[in-house]
Structure formats: C-alpha cells, structure tokens
C-alpha cells in the first residue's frame, strides 16, 4: 500500500460518492469523470499502462461525455426535483449495498489465497498485449468488434427520431 495508491483510491472513491450523492445531474456526470480518471490512474499505478490510458480514452473521453450529452438532451441539467428517493427505499438500498460491502470485506480479510506474499510484477509490453489479442484472443476480439458494431447501429436506431409523416 503505497501513498500514491491511497491518494488515488481516495480520489476515486470521493468522485464515485459525489457522482451518486450530488443533486445536479451535470455535477454527477463530472464527478463520475473524476472517478473514472481516478480508476485510470490506479491502473497506471498498478503498472497496467495501456489499460490506464484506454480507460481515460474510453470512459472519460467517450462515456462521460455521452452521459453529459444525454443529461442535457433530457433536460436534466436544470432539474430541481429532489433526486433522492423517499426514505424507506433509500434506506433499503443503502442497507443492501452496505451488507454486500461487509460480505466482500469479510471475504477479503478471511481469504487465505490472497495473503500470499507479493508476486513480482508481470512484465507485459504492448507488443505482447497486441500479440495476445491477435493470436490467442482473436475470436473474442472479433466477437467484441461485432458486438460494438451491433450496439452502435442499435443505439442509433433506438435513439433516432421516429419518422412521423410530416418532417
């Protein structure tokens, strides 16, 4: 547990909490971008350079911007309606989340498998990653490509305005 890791983790968690707690939807989206960037920095901290940069490119550059766009298109940017649910449901939700966190934390602290002494960091160059994607993981890569294309077309069709005679 190094100091940079702790700082980055704190930034990420604060961003995530802000994304879930703030009132304004645009503020939530911006806090989400902070959380995503924090996770990207955590990847960099863990030595996964390519992943950290891909995380920044995809999540901060694309998904956060997409969310911001949808917030503005649905006029959520200036909504003043109370964002949180009434107390009982909110209470249940937080209880469930807290319970799941407790279980996970219990599992982490009581697992013997992950208390093995630290392994040396794996040396993964970009070349190796590319070779793995193109050789042993070629089929999943194709499937992902197909799925992204399908998602792209699907998203466009779903979001497209329905033709209503007079246009």
């Amino acid at each position: 547990m190094s100091a940079p890791f702790i700082i980055l983790a704190a930034v990420t968690l604060v961003g995530a909490c802000a994304a879930m707690l703030l009132r304004g939807l645009v503020h939530c989206a911006l806090a989400l971008a902070v959380a995503f960037a924090g996770i990207g920095a955590l990847y960099l901290n863990l030595g996964a350079q390519f992943l950290g940069l891909a995380q920044l490119l995809v999540y901060v550059g694309a998904i956060a911007v997409l969310i911001v766009f949808v917030v503005l298109l649905t006029r959520g940017g200036d909504s003043d309606s109370p964002p949180l649910s009434p107390a009982p449901r909110q209470f249940t939700g937080i209880l469930v989340a807290g319970a799941i966190f407790a279980i996970l934390a219990w599992a982490i602290f009581h697992s013997f498998a992950i208390h093995t002494p630290g392994m040396p960091a794996p040396q993964a160059t970009i070349r190796q990653l590319g070779a793995a994607l193109m050789e042993s993981y070629a089929l999943p890569l194709e499937v992902i490509g197909l799925m992204l294309t399908a998602a792209l077309i699907g998203a466009v069709i779903v979001a497209m305005k329905e033709k209503q005679g007079t246009q």
Partner: peptide, 25 residues
C-alpha cells in the same frame, strides 16, 4: 519515453473535451 506515447496523447486530449463542456455549461 512512454511505451504507449501516442495513446497517452489521445487519452489526455479526450479530457479536454470535458473541460470545454465544463466551461460552456
């Protein structure tokens, strides 16, 4: 001398979109 320098460039560029939006909004 980053192993993935070009990707770094574009990843950083992606953040500037968000800052432009922040300014405008």
């Amino acid at each position: 001398n980053l192993d993935s320098g070009v990707l770094f460039f574009f990843a950083i560029g992606a953040i500037s979109e968000l800052s432009v939006f922040m300014a405008g909004w």
